[in-house]
Simulated assay, not measured.
Amino acid sequence: MTKPHFHFDHVGSYLRPQELKTARENFAAGKISREELQAVQDKLVKELVDHEVENGLQVVSDGEFGRSWWHLDFLWQLIGLESYLQEDSYKFHGAKTRTTNVRIVGKLAENPNHSFYRDFTYLKSITPEGVTPKVTIPSPSLVIKRDHRSDLYADYYDSWTDFLDGLAQAYQDTIKHFYDLGARYVQLDDTTWAYLIQQLEDNKNNPELRSEFEQIAQDDVYVINKILEGLPEDLTVATHICRGNFQSTYLFEGGYHTVAKYLGQLNYDIFFLEYDDERSGDFAPLADIWNNRPNVELILGVITSKKPELEDVDAVIARIQEAAQSVPLENLGISTQCGFASTEEGNILTEQDEWNKLQLIKSITDKVWG
Rank of each mutant, 00 (worst) to 15 (best):
D155K: 15
I270R: 06
I104M: 14
C242R: 01
Q265T: 14
G281Y: 11
E214K: 11
E351C: 04
Q265D: 11
K3H: 09
S335T: 10
E64H: 02
G370V: 14
E201K: 14
S33E: 09
A23E: 01
D151W: 15
R118I: 08
W355E: 00
S115E: 15
N225M: 04
T22V: 13
E201G: 13
E47M: 15
S33Q: 09
S61I: 11
F178N: 06
D155H: 14
H114Y: 12
R118P: 00
G166T: 06
P285V: 08
L164T: 08
A170H: 03
G254S: 08
I348D: 05
K307I: 03
K226T: 10
R279K: 09
E35M: 12
E212Y: 15
Y171T: 07
L108P: 11
I126W: 10
I348Y: 10
S68R: 12
I334P: 06
Q215D: 12
S211I: 08
L37W: 15
Q337E: 11
F8L: 09
P140C: 10
E297H: 03
Q38Y: 12
F178A: 05
N245S: 03
K226P: 00
E36Q: 14
L78T: 04
F283P: 02
A260M: 04
H7A: 07
V59D: 07
H240P: 04
T2S: 15
W355H: 03
V259N: 01
L263I: 04
F246Y: 08
L209D: 12
I32Q: 01
I364A: 05
E64Y: 01
L142H: 09
L310Y: 00
D353T: 00
V131D: 08
A29N: 12
S305P: 03
D173S: 14
Q325K: 13
A287I: 07
S248M: 00
G94S: 05
L188G: 01
W193F: 05
D62P: 04
L358K: 06
I320N: 09
H177M: 04
S248L: 02
K226N: 10
N113L: 13
N111F: 07
V186S: 02
T132I: 14
N205G: 13
G244W: 04
L332G: 03
W369Y: 00
T192R: 09
D73W: 09
H177A: 02
R243K: 10
D180P: 02
R210P: 08
A183H: 06
Q265W: 00
E82P: 06
N292E: 12
R67S: 12
F6E: 00
L209Y: 13
T336Q: 01
C242P: 03
A284H: 12
G94H: 12
D62L: 00
Q218D: 14
V40K: 09
H71N: 12
E297M: 06
N291Y: 15
R118F: 04
T239G: 03
S13G: 05
V296W: 02
H257D: 14
I79C: 10
S83T: 15
N291P: 02
I227M: 06
